[in-house]
Computed example of a mutant assay.
Amino acid sequence: MKTTLSEIQLIKIPVVEDFRGNLGFVQNGFLPFDFKRVYYLFDVPSNSFRGGHSHINQQETLIALSGSFEVVLHDGFEKKSFLLNKPNVGLYIPTGIWRELQNFSSGSVCLVLAQDVFDEADYIRDFDEFLKSKK
């Protein structure tokens, strides 16, 4: 499958606003996929990066619950960056897209909603191998 950056979506997360504080929610049926795994990244040093891989079959949505970070996406031909810094915006990443997360602000938390449970066989962790898979 030849996934391109044109399939990336910024998704507005539903929010219930209240003077006591806002409540954002995501439930099955809202995203372009049903999710089976939820995980989050936190305490990432500002000079570190996460990701550095692509998925063969799995789709994900990333949300900056707190703070900010940059998501650099590559489809094998072109590259695009997204700054995530609002807890009511998710970044949908379909299969076949290389991702790197960087420039984490202090106290940032990245929530990931993943289509499936962890499976190492679904990862491409070498960028050259990723580029070969896109040809």
Rank of each mutant, 00 (worst) to 15 (best):
S48G: 07
N57P: 00
E17I: 09
K79M: 15
N47P: 02
S66P: 11
L65Y: 08
G90L: 05
I11C: 01
F19S: 15
S81V: 05
P87S: 06
L113A: 02
K134G: 03
Y123H: 13
F25C: 02
G67N: 03
K134P: 03
Q59S: 09
C110M: 03
S108E: 02
D43Y: 08
T95A: 15
I13N: 05
N28D: 12
A121R: 15
D116I: 00
T95P: 05
P45H: 04
E78T: 15
H74W: 10
F77G: 04
P32Q: 10
G107D: 03
N103S: 14
A114W: 10
T95F: 06
F25M: 06
L5S: 10
F118W: 15
F130E: 07
C110W: 00
D126E: 13
F49M: 12
I13P: 03
G24F: 02
T61P: 06
V15H: 02
D43F: 06
P87E: 11
H74Y: 08
V71Q: 02
E17L: 09
M1Q: 00
L31I: 08
R20L: 10
E120K: 12
L31N: 14
L62H: 13
K80F: 08
E60Q: 15
R37G: 06
V16R: 10
G21I: 02
Y123L: 12
T3W: 06
F30D: 01
P45C: 02
F35Y: 14
K12V: 11
L5A: 12
H55S: 12
L5F: 09
G52C: 13
N22P: 04
R50F: 13
H55E: 09
F42T: 07
R50P: 13
F19N: 14
K2R: 09
Y39Q: 03
L111T: 05
D119I: 06
D43V: 03
Y92F: 15
E7H: 12
F104M: 05
F33R: 01
E129Q: 11
T61Q: 05
E60Y: 07
R125K: 15
L10V: 07
I93V: 15
L10A: 08
K86R: 14
V16Q: 14
N22F: 04
S54P: 11
L101S: 00
T3I: 09
S48V: 07
K2N: 11
N28R: 13
S54C: 12
D122I: 10
S6E: 13
